[in-house]
Design a protein around this nucleic acid. Structure first.
Lengths: 190, 190
DNA sequence: CGGTATGTACAGAAAAAACTGTACAAAATG
DNA sequence: CATTTTGTACAGTTTTTTCTGTACATACCG
């Protein structure tokens, strides 16, 4: 936690407590982004920092090893939740949070969803083709058809779902989502 | 894996292989839904089952203990990915997958997002109030104001984001999302 | 070039999670 | 009611993940 100068310690306590509450709430819910509570806590710490932070400072504030800070912050950078910053005169690497949470949200889920989509859609299509071929080879075999048809139906419906997910991801990635659901609520009176 | 009767073993191998590919793809990507690879695999198994399945059958097919099946299937039921089914004449509990993947997707993310939203928004508002009070008490103290203002700005922007997320969740929960992004792609020619 | 920071690879320790077998409670059967 | 079947709580084990300290590679400085 960043120590604060030039104000009374009573006031500082209030501020630190207010920050701590938010930091811990954030840390607690970061499993949504597939990251550990510690790293979520680190993210929360960086969130309230008003200057880019070094690994040493993080380790000090988190009371954890520099190694953990290094790997933790790298995870956050990979997720584009934190950016590496250069500052002349400092030999150390500096990091600060990406403050655009809309972007963070859209980036993360686009990435994750698309990865799953690609793997699953590829498997679904490959299997669909094989089953379709088998289906065509043996039009007369009723027993076989009875087995194949449910599988093909399920696969087709799954593909339909992934086609939709693909378009949804596009809407997130392109920022079109903010036209469909505006960042700021329209005024209540129509 | 369900064994299949009434067809040649050559054909059965093709079908089992096609299913297996999809099941493993699903299992691999289930971390998206915060569940373990084993449970993801279980979900994939159930996906191709044409009849509701008992815990014993699952354990047999997965080569795992019935205890694991019990806890695994409960996780899936909690996530509304699998439904418990009653069938007269059977004393055993029966389970089958929820086949509406659109619904599964919307349910899961609505649930997760809303949980995070509630916790974080509550913390943000509480801290905002405290800082705001402190801010009002000491209008003249420039050093304090200089510390408070960035925190308040960050909190306000975070709240703005969560207000948007709240509306996004509503759009998912209400099904309005399927008007904004239709389940089936509109024909290419406009 | 030597000397000094700085970040990370790696191996091992600590912690957490997944999985199993046993034991038991609850429900169904006769 | 006694008997049987079924699902799960729980404790212990195995596996996986997280975290740390040391060692080292790289970059920077004079």
């Amino acid at each position: 936690m960043e120590s604060i100068h030039g104000i009374s310690s009573e006031q500082e306590i209030i501020i630190q407590k207010a920050r701590k509450r938010v930091i811990e709430a954030i840390g607690k819910n970061m499993d949504l982004y597939g990251i550990t509570q510690s790293i979520g806590h680190l993210y929360g710490l960086l969130f309230f920092q008003n200057h880019p932070m070094t690994l040493d400072k993080m380790g000090e504030a988190m009371e954890m090893s520099k190694t953990s800070m290094s790997t933790g912050v790298r995870t956050l950078v990979d997720l584009k939740m934190v950016n590496k910053v250069w500052e002349k005169g400092s030999r150390k690497d500096l990091y600060e949070v990406e403050m655009d949470w809309f972007q963070t949200f859209a980036d993360y889920f686009s990435l994750k969803w698309r990865k799953a989509l690609e793997i699953n859609l590829s498997a679904l299509r490959k299997s669909k083709n094989e089953l379709h071929a088998l289906c065509g080879q043996s039009q007369g075999d009723a027993a076989l058809q009875a087995v194949l048809q449910p599988d093909l139906d399920k696969i087709d419906e799954a593909i339909r779902y992934y086609m939709w997910l693909d378009r949804l991801i596009d809407v997130f990635e392109s920022g079109e989502i903010y036209n469909l659901v505006p960042k700021d609520a329209p005024p209540p009176g129509q």
